[in-house]
Design a protein around this nucleic acid. Structure first.
Lengths: 136, 136
DNA sequence: CTAGGTGCAAAACATTTGCAAGGTA
DNA sequence: TACCTTGCAAATGTTTTGCACCTAG
């Protein structure tokens, strides 16, 4: 458990019981869980744990780069018409999603390590040209 | 508008007014809109349009490969501890997310086309080895 | 002691479902 | 006409917010 105290301290946030338990769970269970999965898994050991705390903690740990959030586009589905392969960049300043026509020929394989691949997406996060120029 | 009729027919679905308007909007506005954005944009021209129809239509058009949905992981945020760069595969059969350790050195650039890149994710969709072997 | 973290309940969004009425082929 | 689509209202699911209490440093 000492490890987790240090990880939290290094990230600059308080090492509460809840945060350590959540971090420990994520470390031991590499299943990319949802917020609810984390909550359900821990509630028997921590009967007073609230789902709000799980939400708060996961958010804070992502902010402090301890965890990675897989869903780059948050809680809303987004759609597009263009079917030409291209890359998406989500600007963290203006929240716009920009198409980049950088070519990629990686992952046109139909199989990787025995898994059949049918679709792929490359998503980047950063700050777009426009936001970089307008002071930021 | 003729184009959109044909696109819908070719996809094997009926060419209703609503579907054509939604498709036309997606074609003219390459902003990766959310369901609500599509709804808000069209409601002045189509006062009787319901959000349910927008949801139904977008879903159907994705099923029939006319549109692309950007959020590979649906409506729930997912978190992971591992910070080593790797690729995610979402199996469309068992819904599990599998880590692939295939190396990629593409997009370690800090800048692409003037945009500053801070983070990137490569997400694949397909059928995992296990599901392929168990009959599918 | 004090700022920040926790937990409860309620609110705010996003999405789905059931079903009657309407439109397309 | 027959089937599929639409639109409304209600239900479900996810995330956020407000606020009083508690806890780590």
């Amino acid at each position: 458990m000492m490890d987790f105290v240090e990880i939290l301290k290094n990230a600059g946030i308080a090492a509460s019981q809840q945060r350590m338990m959540i971090l420990k769970y994520l470390d031991a269970n590499r299943i990319h869980p949802t917020t609810d999965q984390v909550f359900q898994a821990l509630r028997s050991d921590m009967p007073t744990l609230s789902k709000t705390t799980v939400y708060n903690t996961l958010k804070k740990l992502v902010e402090h780069k301890v965890l990675v959030e897989l869903s780059l586009f948050e809680n809303e589905a987004r759609y597009e018409y263009d079917r030409e392969p291209h890359i998406h960049l989500k600007c963290t300043e203006c929240n716009e999603i920009i198409d980049l026509d950088k070519k990629f020929d990686l992952y046109t394989d139909t199989f990787i390590a025995g898994h059949k691949i049918t679709e792929h997406q490359i998503n980047l996060k950063g700050i777009c040209k426009k936001c970089l120029s307008t002071g930021e």
